[in-house]
Design a protein around this nucleic acid. Structure first.
Lengths: 337, 337
DNA sequence: TTGAAAGCGATACCAT
DNA sequence: ATGGTATCGCTTTCAA
């Protein structure tokens, strides 16, 4: 079982190397009979083209890189990421791409390793998990014109392809729901306000209050960091202001907020209603089960891959910018039955 | 900024291509001055060797594959995996390897895509997340002698490299702890019993009971599946038998068990004590905080990479089989304040 | 539709 | 210690 080459397949099928290559790559200019015969041989021998030789000759690697920059590294344990990766991996599988994962920890590491993804040698293109405003990585990607799509909308979005959930509208729906249920002192625990997702969800909150002519109380807006502990601490800061509801910008933080409320002896939703964002697995099994805004995380990943492949195959194009709808999922924590 | 080649660096530094290659690969036979000069040029020009050309010539890709087989795919959203991946990614970073991720969903997909990892073309070696007994993937890996190490001990471990936690001893410690606290009716929710990790942890449970001469009550042993819902359902089946303690073979299942107990109106740890396994982030913030067995997940990943690289560089060797110690983490759920 | 041949950009062996 | 050169396995013009 020594390694087979195109050459050998060619010989076995009585055609030239070129022809076999055409068959393998599904080119048109091959007569049906020849194609048939070659495929036969390939099948019988179990031939697989050598990826290295192939990339060298074609200048394409067939590899998509998923980059988790240092700045979001600390969130990587959030259940959000496995879901995202499932979506990405599945799409890669169906589109015959290989997925490589780049997790950067330290700044030094990011500096040293980023060339791996900012040159078109190793990867054909990359998917980048949402970056804070003006990350150097984005700049490098643009400079070296490496095709890439971001998950999460970038701050300067002109010319950049991305896939995002409709965060503003999602937050708006969450807060409107609370208002509809008669809550008046609606607080919010935001995401980090140096990220667009953080800003967007806060905006949705503001929009909903505005629309109803609710007064804006700055004390009811506390910044979180998307971690459970962050949610816990933020909730504690909110308590002295007696909110009767709180929109939390992520389920993970909402879990932390619930914990803070429990510690404070407050009853959810009786004393205070709560709505999260994401609809992670933990939301449904929280105590009480968490009303939340579901975002289609897997599809986010899948769409990112599709957009990227589009970029790869059709060359530079107007950027593909996709915003997916969210959905209000009502459970017990908001007090609606 | 056209693409630089070895050739050009050679010219710019006034040496041959071979010499530049030696410098790049840190070979010994290069005079200090020449090396210095070449490195200078490389630095100035920002040259990076082409990975494809390199793999083609050297027959090594520098890529390590992480394989999540279909059979464990449904567990991928467990917080265990991000941690594991962090450990693996970090080790890959420091050892200059690229990490590729292979998630297989359907059986068809696994069949179609497994050649990617079972031939030494694309990846130099692979890390496989624990497989149920005698998975075909293992067989293929062995047949094609692709270097690989498993995370989690395989059933037939002769000749196979793996990294595992000491599951049996961990479970033993958990159950002994419960016994020490005076619990008598100690139940267990096991992992899937077609996996060795499931069997091992059950064995630890049995060992602890045995040692103390506790009677074995089959009704107190219920099989779970490592999911939250599985834990919930298993706990419900346990309730009619009035256990006063339960060792749950994973934190995720323990969270489900807690939910079942809450629904049943039982107080933890007063009515029933509970100990989990893993020490995932969710354990510390559960209500009550979960006593659990901590396993060093990141190190598991890191060790797997190190073992694999060892295999890659030193060729076939006696398998490296590493078992890492676990640690009892006492919180409120077991009743030992 | 098919084949011949020129790369693709490195590595590594063999001389010197 | 250094250079020359064959080689890795495939893609892709260009001719036929």
């Amino acid at each position: 079982m020594s390694k087979l080459t195109l050459e050998q397949i060619a010989e076995l099928s009585g055609v030239s190397r070129s022809t076999v290559s055409r068959v393998v790559n599904n080119h048109i200019s091959v007569s049906p009979e020849v194609r048939q015969r070659v495929l036969q041989v390939i099948e019988e021998t179990g031939y697989h083209p050598d990826p290295a030789a192939r990339s060298l000759a074609s200048q394409r690697s067939g590899i998509i890189g998923l980059v988790i920059p240092r700045s979001v590294q600390f969130l990587f344990t959030d259940p959000y990421y496995p879901r995202l990766m499932q979506g990405i991996a599945q799409a890669c599988n169906t589109h015959h791409y290989i997925l490589s994962l780049f997790l950067f920890y330290t700044e030094e590491e990011e500096q040293r390793l980023s060339p791996r993804v900012t040159r078109k040698q190793l990867v054909d293109g990359v998917i980048v998990s949402a970056l804070p405003v003006k990350d150097p990585l984005t700049v490098q990607l643009l400079e070296n014109d490496v095709p890439f799509v971001m998950i999460g909308r970038p701050t300067i979005s002109s010319g950049i392809s991305f896939v995002d959930s409709d965060n503003t509208e999602g937050a708006y729906k969450a807060v409107s729901h609370l208002a509809r249920l008669g809550r008046r002192q609606i607080a919010t625990i935001t995401g980090p306000l140096n990220t667009l997702v953080g800003l967007d969800r806060r905006q949705g909150y503001l929009n909903a209050l505005n629309e109803r002519g609710y007064p804006l109380d700055e004390a009811l807006i506390v910044e979180g960091d998307f971690t459970e502990t962050g949610g816990y601490l933020a909730m504690q800061r909110l308590l002295p202001h007696y909110p009767d509801a709180v929109f939390v910008a992520s389920d993970t933080m909402a879990l932390g907020a619930l914990r803070a409320l429990r510690n404070a002896g407050l009853a959810v939703p009786h004393d205070i209603a709560i709505v999260g964002f994401d609809d992670l697995p933990g939301a449904a099994i929280a105590d009480p089960p968490l009303t939340t805004i579901r975002q289609p995380i897997q599809q986010l990943g899948g769409q990112a891959v599709i957009s990227l492949i589009d970029l790869l195959t059709h060359g530079p194009q107007p950027p593909r910018q996709i915003v997916l709808k969210t959905q209000l999922v009502i459970r017990a924590s908001c007090g609606a039955q």
